[in-house]
Amino acid sequence: MSHPNRERADRILDAAGELLLRMGYRKVAVDDIARAVGIGKGTVYLHWRNKELLFQALMMRESADLTDEILGRIRADPATILPHRMISEAFLVTHRRPLVMAMLRGNADMFGSLGDLALRKQQDELRTQFEEAMLRRGLIRSDVPNLTYALNAATLGFYLGDTLSDEFDGIPLEDKAAVLAHLIRTAFEPPGEPDPAAVADVAAELSSALEELVSGYRQGIYAHDPTRAPG
């Protein structure tokens, strides 16, 4: 059974997310969030001591939900972990979350000092683990120089390209994801069909890493929730 305080915390985060997208981090005050939820400002502080912690909780919840979505896809089909599928699925899932997109694009106006969340460090560690597992099991080419840089640069262009020019606005999102998958498949994966045992292994390893990440996020979201722990 979900606790009423947890439900209230989620309502506060929902309101904070809407205001963040509309006004940007600097302009949103805790007062605005409280008013949107119909509670007093003091009640917001029962959950999070300050505005920064509240918005960190919001981004953790976004990241947890996004990661859960990707986990669901891996459980439904372990081959989702192949680089071209993983990267293009993540591209689609991320684009459907305006807050995550804004965070990714380092929208300083929207996020103030929140851009350097610990989330990024965890995601970098996860990416390293993903690449190492892929290399170990032969699911990614070992002859690509500066593999991490190459993958990152190839992928990031798809996220940031339309912020630099509106030339390609007419291309549907699904088509962009298909182009990304094609690029990763042809540039970074060995030719031929992947070994099903290798796919299953990496899927299991990655799933447990993602589950751990999600449970860490979920604990962090409500860290100041009075139903859980003092402080």
Rank of each mutant, 00 (worst) to 15 (best):
L180P: 00
Q56C: 01
E7K: 01
V100P: 09
A34C: 04
S113E: 13
F158C: 08
R96L: 11
T148N: 08
A29D: 06
N107M: 02
D65A: 06
D225L: 00
G106R: 09
D169T: 11
A29E: 12
L173F: 12
I184T: 01
D201S: 11
L213R: 14
A79Q: 14
A223N: 03
G161R: 11
G216H: 05
D68R: 14
F130Q: 08
R26V: 03
Y159R: 10
L160F: 12
G138M: 13
H47Y: 02
D68W: 04
N5S: 10
G42Y: 09
H95A: 06
L19E: 00
G42M: 10
L210V: 04
A178H: 06
S207M: 03
G112N: 10
E189P: 13
G106M: 14
V199F: 13
G17I: 07
K176G: 09
E205K: 06
E62S: 12
F91I: 07
L46Y: 00
N146C: 05
D225T: 02
D169M: 08
D162Y: 05
A15D: 03
G192R: 09
D65V: 06
R97P: 06
G216Q: 04
F188G: 05
Q122L: 08
R8G: 01
R61V: 11
Y159A: 09
S208F: 11
I74Q: 03
T128G: 15
D32V: 12
S63N: 08
Q122D: 14
G112I: 03
M110P: 06
G17L: 02
L104P: 09
L206Q: 10
F111G: 05
A64C: 05
S215P: 07
P4F: 05
R105M: 11
L117N: 15
D109S: 14
T67N: 07
I33L: 00
T67E: 09
E174M: 12
L210Q: 08
G17P: 06
G157A: 06
R35S: 14
P194W: 11
V100D: 14
A150Y: 08
Y149A: 15
E193A: 07
D124M: 08
P83S: 07
W48F: 01
Y25R: 07
T148G: 10
A178M: 05
A229N: 15
L54A: 03
M86E: 10
N107E: 11
L20G: 02
A90K: 03
I74F: 07
R75S: 15
R185G: 10
L20R: 00
E89Y: 05
T227Y: 02
N152D: 13
G192H: 05
P191R: 02
D166W: 03
V202H: 04
K51E: 08
M110T: 11
R75D: 15
H95N: 09
P172Q: 10
S208R: 15
L71D: 01
M101T: 15
G138D: 14
L147Q: 07
R185T: 10
L117E: 14
P83W: 00
